[in-house]
Design a protein around this nucleic acid. Sequence first.
DNA 1: TTACAAATAAGAATTATTACTATATAGTTT
DNA 2: AAACTATATAGTAATAATTCTTATTTGTAA
Lengths: 142, 142
Amino acid sequence: MKRLLEEKDAFHDKCRERGLKLTPQRLAIYEAMRYSKEHPSIDMVYQKIKKKFPRISFDTVYRTLITLCDIGLVKPVEGYGYTRRFDPNTGQHHHFHCVKCQKIVDFYDQTYDRLTAPSKIAPGYKILSKKVVVEGLCPDCS
Amino acid sequence: MKRLLEEKDAFHDKCRERGLKLTPQRLAIYEAMRYSKEHPSIDMVYQKIKKKFPRISFDTVYRTLITLCDIGLVKPVEGYGYTRRFDPNTGQHHHFHCVKCQKIVDFYDQTYDRLTAPSKIAPGYKILSKKVVVEGLCPDCS
DNA sequence: TTACAAATAAGAATTATTACTATATAGTTT
DNA sequence: AAACTATATAGTAATAATTCTTATTTGTAA
């Protein structure tokens, strides 16, 4: 309970900081993302939110997810040509993609975290993030 | 010139092997991909091919790129929610993505190539590929 | 509590992706 | 070299994803 309140406040502060209004829709979208594990698409979030806000528009969910990316509360997930998906986990981690069912699984690995940028792309390039993407078949599909 | 012929033959053989017919369209699409450096989208390939084959349909380009992926001559590129793009480089390499202009740059790094799969995702998961994706700003954008 | 900038809903427009069908063609086989 | 047949293609239509427009509503700061 305390944790919930703290997060709500963190979100509150982040919005304030950026001059964004704290609307119920925006908060609901953030919370739906925050506790999701499935790296949802815009439509998946929209379907979930609709249960609480039957009158919310798809566009609001769409814009809000982009906004949440802009302020760094969620991240777009790298994908292979299907729908865009989002990740509430903004910390350093890596992804496994199932090539069959398109499931995306987070994993943590210190070796991967410690990778340094190769010197070849260093000069002129400003590096913002590095991550390892593993593809294969998940236990359900293999 | 010799190299060109060899590649044409390699393509020829690969098609034969899979029971695919060697059509001028298919060859043109393959060659357009083969010598591209920009990780083109379906539409980029279509626009290029149209100059040689004004009557080619978008669908043919679309289907052919999927076919080329199926037979392993090109690979879909991991992307962040924009249009699907393809890579003629099927060897082990890694990508830099410019977050501003969406340019994708190949790079090679032996340390990255040698990464092993973390034990956490080993049991049950069948790993097919691993690659490092670096995001940031390219020299033109930074 | 009022004014105002920002956010929303609703729907339309745009762009991307995929599917369908009649015709044409590559690669045989006769 | 003519005919055959399984694919492949062009043309177009359908579906899905993304973005824009406009009128209205709502947080927030004064």
